[in-house]
Amino acid sequence: MRRLKRISLWRAGVPLALLCAGLLFATSATSARGTDLRPSRNTTLAGLVEEQSRRSAALVRQHATLTQEIEQLQEQQGSIDPKVAARLKSLSDAVGTTPVTGPGLTVTLKDAPKDVVRDNPDVDADWLVIHQQDIQAVVNALWAGGAEALTIQNHRVISTTGIKCVGNSVVLHGVPYLPPYKITAIGDKRKLQKALDDSKYIENLQDYVVRFQLGYDVTNESSILMPAYEGTLDLQSAAAPGFERTPTVSPTATGGR
């Protein structure tokens, strides 16, 4: 009788234990909402942006290294026509695929300090941060001032480079970055500075620098070592003013030339 009683209790306890375990798993999943509950992991937005930036930069460097190895193997095998190779080399500086050095300027842009944000709760938050148009204004002014080469966050800017705001970060070549933003240009320092001073948009930005302490600092550089552009050179789409834009496909995606 006792043996039968123990078996009955065991049979009744197993489903109950499984039910409790299921409830615990469901509660944990609901509380986590798909996130990591371990406090040791950095799940803040800034941490995620920095982690993604490091990962993307590592992949870009790996891509550049493999591309360079392929080009070296092609040259060794003589698969590139010498005239074509010479032409490619002459265009590399203009395209931005080779490192360059020279004097120039660095412009650093920063959001308003935290105490200014705290002390101005009624001010539009958009007035207290650097936006993509601020970075674009500096870049455009430097190009207008005769910049020979340019980087943002130490990444080479080329003709297809796009700058886009996503939340409180700026995306460059598909990689998110947080402020401060550093824009560096190689060229005649006096002409570059004059172009910055003559920019109407930067003049408007200076008002917010005074009112809300947005960061705007220009530094003279006697010698700048600027890296080569290491991303893809494929142009995905383009549109001319006055013409209707139509979807296009990259030639490399279809195997064309």
Rank of each mutant, 00 (worst) to 15 (best):
L73F: 11
P241L: 01
R55A: 15
T184L: 00
L45D: 10
K110S: 15
P82V: 11
E230I: 06
R3Q: 09
N168R: 08
R61W: 03
L172I: 11
D124W: 07
F25Q: 11
F212R: 02
P247V: 05
N204D: 14
K89E: 15
T35S: 15
V209G: 03
H155N: 13
W10L: 02
T252F: 04
P99H: 06
P227I: 00
T219F: 12
V107G: 01
G34T: 08
K114N: 14
L73Y: 11
V84H: 10
V171T: 12
G231L: 04
Y201M: 04
L88V: 14
A32F: 08
A94K: 12
L4M: 12
D124M: 00
V139F: 13
H173G: 11
S40G: 03
N168F: 14
I70A: 13
G255E: 04
K191A: 12
A12F: 09
V117W: 08
V166C: 11
E203V: 06
D198G: 09
L235P: 08
G96L: 05
P113D: 15
A141H: 04
P241F: 01
A228V: 00
L9Y: 14
S237A: 14
G78Q: 05
S31Q: 14
E50M: 06
T254L: 14
P241S: 01
R2N: 04
L128T: 06
L128D: 10
G167W: 09
Y216P: 00
D93A: 11
A239R: 07
V175C: 01
T44G: 04
A57Y: 02
P121N: 05
K110E: 15
E203Y: 10
E230C: 03
E230R: 13
L172D: 02
V95K: 02
Q153F: 09
R118D: 15
T101D: 10
G104Q: 00
L172W: 06
A29Q: 03
Q213A: 12
L59N: 02
S31H: 10
R11N: 13
S79P: 06
K182V: 06
K5W: 09
S53K: 11
A57C: 02
I183N: 07
S56K: 11
S237K: 13
S250I: 03
L178V: 07
A144E: 04
S56T: 11
F243M: 11
S92G: 12
L128I: 03
N220W: 10
F212D: 03
Q213N: 12
D197N: 14
A85I: 05
D198T: 05
D126A: 14
C165K: 11
A147P: 08
T35W: 14
R33H: 14
S79D: 08
L196Y: 12
D124V: 01
M1I: 01
A32P: 08
L24N: 07
D119C: 00
S40V: 13
V123P: 02
T252G: 11
S56M: 10
I70H: 10
G167M: 05
L23V: 05
A26N: 03
G22T: 13
Q153T: 09
L233P: 07
T232R: 15
I135W: 08
R211D: 15
A149M: 04
Q132T: 09
D111C: 07
A64H: 07
A57W: 01
A147G: 08
L150S: 07
A86I: 00
D36G: 09
D124T: 04
E148W: 00
F212V: 01
N140W: 05
G174P: 07
A94N: 13
G255W: 04
T184Y: 00
R55C: 14
D36E: 13
M226R: 00
